[in-house]
């Protein structure tokens, strides 16, 4: 059981987190934009998250908090 939380409004949509996720569950939310005007990163299938924190490790903007 693990969970990642994105502070969506500070995401710059760079997609680096999508390259680091071993489960490939991070996607860009193309149905919405944040205050900066980017599609923020999000996870749709949270039950697949293993809480490895790779996404948070590569995020340049400290968008992600990981719980496990």
């Amino acid at each position: 059981m693990a969970k990642v939380t994105f502070k969506e409004d500070i995401c710059k949509g760079c997609q680096l987190c999508t390259t680091a996720c071993p489960k490939n569950i991070i996607v860009m939310a193309t149905d919405r934009i944040n205050v900066k005007g980017y599609h923020p990163a999000t996870v749709l299938e949270m039950e697949k998250c293993i809480g490895c924190a790779n996404c948070a490790l590569i995020c340049p903007d400290c968008v992600i908090t990981v719980e496990r």
Binding site: I10, K12, G51, P60, C62, T65, V66
Partner: peptide
């Protein structure tokens, strides 16, 4: 669940001016 990763206290709350994806 315990927090295994959160923003360090060593950084301020200010958002950086760096371009998207800048390391």
């Amino acid at each position: 669940m315990a927090i295994v990763f959160e923003k360090t206290k060593g950084l301020t709350d200010k958002e950086t001016h760096y371009c998207p994806g800048c390391t």
